[in-house]
Write a protein that binds this DNA or RNA. Structure first.
Lengths: 202, 202
DNA sequence: TTTCCTACTGTACCGAAGTACGGTAGGCGA
DNA sequence: TCGCCTACCGTACTTCGGTACAGTAGGAAA
């Protein structure tokens, strides 16, 4: 597959031309072939979307690998989410670049070992917190108790809850007491922590 | 690179042998060559870790692609996190499997287009929520106030906080009052919502 | 040296939260 | 019909949270 290297930095283009003699190089604004593997090295600080989206619009059939001199997780995510097929350190060794090309040409995505590791770990840790947020607490509660629980969880006072549901403050207290008992909370604050899925340390 | 297909399902092994005549097939318990590309199709419902970890322990140099008849995001994440190089639908077309092999052999990771898309979207959406949790509230607070704020946020009573920091309950109240004033909260529950980054509706 | 900020403490007070007793009324299955 | 659950309400009480109005002590900057 034809490969094309794009950058605004003339010096970088020269060094790439040297490293990959059979590579086409050009500006980010160059004419694009309909089908190619495009390497793009935008200036540092450019957000990936502003580079990836126009390129994909101009050459929808092409594969795009975004290069970065200071690769980081967020940028990689943004690039791939915008439609890039790969994200790679601009100073990577030629063999690594070859591998990236192979992977991408075969329909894979390339973000490098280190970044993939970090991406995986953050995602799994984020997902681990999510299920805790899950609404297990609803299981043993009646409909009314769930109403009151949600109100307490967002910080409402008994008086406010009473007004909201058109019942007396006394009845609110009744429900709150039941909630504390059922969910094993000491007071409404711990109740709100449970409802909101905030991890407990105690 | 030598490829090896592992499963406990005899029928599946036969169909694979048919589709890939030059492929070695075996049980999950088979002897493993030191260096190979291993395809493993564990029985449905098996957690990826229990398959991946032992395999990687027995053949650390090998590349492992986990197959699943009912692929889903969580399982893919678990598999890759455990050290698999790929995760793929067990019913995927031979060409797709070939691509996966190419990608993995070149040091890439393979989880398929659809799964990658979903993984990216969930990760970005999760990361988008994170910054809201960001600790803006620390800005205007003194060191002691931050201590007390964190304690309040996890549900500690004034008495407990006093014990924790070796100060009187009175002083805790002093700090809490300052916190409520500075962060614009009505009571300690709303304070905890702010600290914990729970979105406010009021 | 004066001034300001931070950290800390004391007494007194009020209101909210939560508990402990009680009670009524309706629905639902045995 | 009898229990059981749910939702609701009342009074009295204790505890906790929070405020008001005080004060002391140390450090840092003017």
């Amino acid at each position: 597959m034809q490969q094309l290297f794009l950058s605004v930095d003339a010096q970088r283009r020269d060094s790439w031309r040297e490293a990959f003699p059979d590579l086409n190089v050009g500006f980010l604004e160059s004419h694009l072939p309909p089908t190619a593997l495009i390497w793009a090295l935008p200036p540092a600080g450019t957000s990936p979307e502003t580079v990836v989206s126009p390129l994909r619009a101009r050459a929808p059939e092409s594969l795009l690998i975004l290069l970065s001199d200071e690769p980081d997780e967020d940028e990689a995510l943004a690039a791939l989410a915008a439609g890039a097929a790969g994200y790679c350190n601009g100073h990577a060794a030629p063999t690594v670049l070859q591998q990236a090309a192979t992977v991408v040409e075969n329909g894979g995505m390339w973000i490098g070992q280190a970044l993939m590791k970090r991406l995986l770990s953050t995602t799994t840790s984020l997902l681990k917190q999510r299920p805790a947020t899950n609404e297990v607490w609803r299981d043993t509660l009646t409909a009314r108790e769930q109403d009151v629980a949600l109100a307490v969880a967002r910080g409402a006072s008994n008086k406010e809850i009473a007004r909201q549901f058109n019942i007396t403050e006394r009845t609110v207290k009744f429900h709150v007491s039941a909630l504390l008992e059922k969910l094993g909370a000491r007071d409404r604050l711990q109740l709100s922590l449970i409802i909101n899925g905030v991890p407990r340390l105690t």
